[in-house]
Every structure is written in structure tokens, then in C-alpha cells.
Design a protein around this nucleic acid. Sequence first.
DNA 1: TAAATAGTGTCTATAAGACACTATTCT
DNA 2: AGAATAGTGTCTTATAGACACTATTTA
Lengths: 221, 221
Amino acid sequence: MNTTTVFPRPSVTADIALFTIRERALNVLLIKRGEDPFLGRWAVPGGFVRPEETLEDAALRELAEETGVSEVLLDQLRVFSEPKRDPRTWVITVAFTALVASDTLMLRAGTDAADASWFPINHLPTPLAFDHDAILDYAVKSLRARLAVDLQIAAGLLPRRFTLTQMQEVCETISGTALDKRNFRKEVLSTGSVVPTDEEKRGAHRPALLYEFAPKRTFGG
Amino acid sequence: MNTTTVFPRPSVTADIALFTIRERALNVLLIKRGEDPFLGRWAVPGGFVRPEETLEDAALRELAEETGVSEVLLDQLRVFSEPKRDPRTWVITVAFTALVASDTLMLRAGTDAADASWFPINHLPTPLAFDHDAILDYAVKSLRARLAVDLQIAAGLLPRRFTLTQMQEVCETISGTALDKRNFRKEVLSTGSVVPTDEEKRGAHRPALLYEFAPKRTFGG
DNA sequence: TAAATAGTGTCTATAAGACACTATTCT
DNA sequence: AGAATAGTGTCTTATAGACACTATTTA
């Protein structure tokens, strides 16, 4: 490594694929660009990282600024660094996925975004700005792969307390397959990571017990 | 997003945790720093990304420059972006893991590295430069986790053709557990991703059939 | 013929998957 | 009483793990 000064520096952004479940479909939040390049096209929220913060900080800050969403579960996906991914200049982006429960969302278009809206991932307003089609494609595959390994991923898409039927619907929506009710419950409860509460959800039918996730452990960080 | 120009830009590096198996232990390649900061400390190879390349390109180029190694299997780990991780200035790094077969390596200290050497991961010359202790810790955990899911990860640490005993030793070394020979062979061969060749390895004992990996598929990229 | 490593099968225990009815509440 | 959703167990099949001996080559 030589000294820093002789090397050109890229701009670095954090981009966030924010997912939720709406009407039994996996949805992603997009923002209509209010400026060039790609004026008028839809893009995932994101923005430039600042010298005093990490990229995770930047992702959370941009999400809050552009969408008003703050209670999210963030995961770093990977870096997208094709030199020409931004037509103007050299911009490297670090992509994140973020999950929110459908009932905790309150959208708010930020000052630098013309509009913000949810789109089912099967009905995206393609082509998106920059390489965001590729970012979303990667994000969805990654989300499915992680859910297949660990049902606890669904935690991010559920309210703090939820019924097992709600959790099953989330898992079915993401994986795109129907699950057996008894086997699903057996599996979820056997791990001990989902525990019953003393609360129930009532409706015009038999009340359902509410469950919540036991504190979580992940590797690394 | 506002225009690019008003935002300060970080330097961006690619750092590579290059692993191999030596004497039945997982080893990582380190380079002794020939300049400040951390002059004289050991660090993983890496360097600044250039405007005309991706970070994967940069990782491969730096590996080749600093170590002479070129036939590697690269995986993006994650970004390390603590603002103070480099004491001089703002440097974000994208960490990679890379795997090489122990017989394909030919080390060569680069012009900007005083020395290059393999270290067993249990005997690292800590503290390493920058946050490289944390990077290696993360890299090792990630490698173990990926191997537990997919034995094919071992491909990167084996020569093109190998005996099943060699492959078993690699898996045992990384996971740190002893494996049953018959069960291991049953599992490896059942997937169809490891196939026999018509070649064998001879010694002062019964010859062993050589195997190779069938072409690989990964998600995303 | 001894030393060294390769190669091979069965049995058991556990996990995963298919499958259908009863229970409770509200209107 | 009917509509709506919650909740519950068994059997079968597939997978994973424990376990020990024979085979082939070279020196």
C-alpha cells in the first residue's frame, strides 16, 4: 500500500432494499427520483456515507430521512462496484436488506425524494435507476435463502407479538410454497426461539395465542 | 441524494483473508507492513481499488501483486467501515475470503510489502494492523459456517484432483471435528458434486482413486 | 510378510413429511 | 346454529450417525 493521497477516491453510498409483507405479497419500498441521473425512475432508498459514521449508520439514517422508518432489522448484503454503475461518476454502493412489520410502517417522502411507495416484487416499475434491478434481484434471493435456513428471519417482518398463523403466512409468502400447519407449528416451537405470551388476538372466531421471538443470537458483526 | 461533489469521499480498499491448509491446520497469509501506519505489524494483503475495476478485480490484482497467487476462489465477506479503523484517514475496506490449494501456492513478497508468510489461525502474530484481527475473526467464522452448509466449499482448498481422504482432512481441519470415514464418503458422493476420475494416487500402500468437483453453481453474483 | 492407507454396509435412532378432525369464539 | 379461524397427534419415510473389517499396494 502506498500513501493514500495518490489514489482517486470513489463516492460511497448505502442502498437499502426495505421489505415488508402487504396483502400476502412481498413488497419493497421504492422512491421516485427527483433529480438526474434517472430523473423520474424508481430507486431503492439510499445516500452517501459520511466520514463520522459506518455504512450501517448511513443506511439507518437514510432510511429514516427518506421514509420515516426507524425500527428495522438491517443486514449487509454486498458491495456493488461496477465502475460504470453510475453514469456520471465513480460511485460504489453497499447494499443492505431491511425488514419491517407491515403494521409499523409510516411512510414519509423525504426532501430529496419526489415520492415513495411500496411495490410487490413481482410488479416492479422496471427498469429501475442505476443497477437497482440487480440489487433487488440479489436481495430477494438472499432473503429467500436466509429464510430457508432460519425461520427466525421472519421476525423482522412481524409485529413484536404475532399469531403462528401470521408467521406461517409470512414464511409462505417469501418462500412461495404452501406449508403444513401442524408441521410448521411443530418446527417453530421445537427450536424454542418462538415463545408463547399470555396475550391473545381476538376476532369473530376462536382467539389465537400471541407469540414472540426469544432474544436472538447471530454470528459475527 | 444531492450532487456528488459536496460529499467527502473515503478511500476504499479490498482486503483478502487468503486461506490454505498446511500441516493439517488452517493457515492465513499475512504480510509484514513496510510502512506506516503499523510499520512492522502483520496485516492481510490488500490495497486501494481503482476507478476502472470492481472490488473483486482489486482483490485479485492485489493478491497477485503481493503474493503471486492467482488461482483462487474469492468470496465477498462484508464491509468494515468504522470511521477510525485507519488512524490517518477515512478508509473503508471490503473484506474477501480467498481459498487456495496448499500445493498451488508460490509466495512472492510484493514491492510494498517487507515480507509475506503463512500463519496457523491459532497462532497469529497479534495484534495485527488496523482492524485485521476482527476481519480474520469474521472470515474464519464465515468459512466454518459456509463449510457446514456446503462441503463443496472445500473445493477451493484442494488441488483439482484429490483423494476422498484428502477432502475429509480438509473438512476436519476447518470444522475442528473428527468425521467418520464411511459416512463422509456416503455424504460426499450422494450429492453428485464430487465425481471419480480414472486417475489414482500411488504410494507405499494401496492406491487411492482421485476425484474432482463437478462444475459448481452458486446463487447471485 | 509387514506396514500403510483405501475402501466398503448395516443397523438404529432421529427428523421430516403426509395427513383430518375437534375446539372456541362471535354474530 | 353457522361461520370463521385456532389448535392438536400419529404414522410413515427418509436421513444421519454409530460402528469394524477386508483389500491392495510397496518395501
